[in-house]
Each structure stands twice: as C-alpha cells, then as structure tokens.
C-alpha cells in the first residue's frame, strides 16, 4: 500500500508547477509528504476538507482551492484519504 502512495506522490510531484503534496488519513494523521510540504499540516488539511464538506452534507466531497498571486493549494478528500497539492503559479 505504501508503495502505491509513494508512486502516486512521485507522479504528482513530477507534474509541472507542483512544489509539494501531502496525504492524510480520515483522522488527520500524515500518510506521506513530498516536496515543500510539512507532515505537520496533515491535521489542518483534513480539518479543512471536513469543514468544507459540512457546507453540503449530502453531496460528494468538494474540491477546495486556495490561491494568491504566486501560489495555489488544492485539497480534496477521496474516501478515507485527504490530499493537498501545492502549486507555484507561473507568470
């Protein structure tokens, strides 16, 4: 299982523009982090996904997208796993 997670994270981190990615379980415990991502934020990422899901409890998990002039952050829950991808905006 870890090998699959590692491979998925490697594929993500090798995508253009991605500077980091982190995976957390349903409790907010870190499953893995690559690039410029700290395992300490796993709990926060899971909390954000949970909070956003409360907007419409009957619907599928939403994608949360944060951005400023230089960076983007995408958070999505798929089953028991929450993923966050950090991207650099190319100008």
């Amino acid at each position: 299982m870890e090998r699959n997670l590692e491979k998925t994270m490697d594929d993500v981190i090798n995508t253009e523009g991605v500077i980091g990615c982190i995976l957390a379980d349903h409790q907010g415990l870190c499953l893995g982090a690559k690039g410029k991502a700290s395992g300490d934020s796993a709990g926060l990422i899971a909390a954000i996904a949970d909070q956003a899901a409360k907007l419409e409890p009957g619907s599928k998990s939403p994608i949360i997208y944060l951005q400023n002039d230089t960076r983007q952050c995408l958070i999505h829950r798929q089953g028991p796993v929450v993923a966050a991808i950090y991207k650099q905006v190319s100008s």
Binding site: I19, G20, I22, G35, K36, A37, S38, D40, S41, L44, I45, I48, A52, L55, P62, I63, I64, Y65, L66, Q67, N68, D69, T70, R71, C73, A84, Y86
Partner: peptide
Amino acid sequence: IDSNAFATNEKFDKMSVT
C-alpha cells in the same frame, strides 16, 4: 496552512469550494 510551502506572511486572497 503550511509554513514549509507558504511563508507565514503569505496569505491566500481567494478560495473556492467546487
């Protein structure tokens, strides 16, 4: 969110929930 990826003074100015 993440002090490793984003500097502490770096804030987000837009968010979307899709």
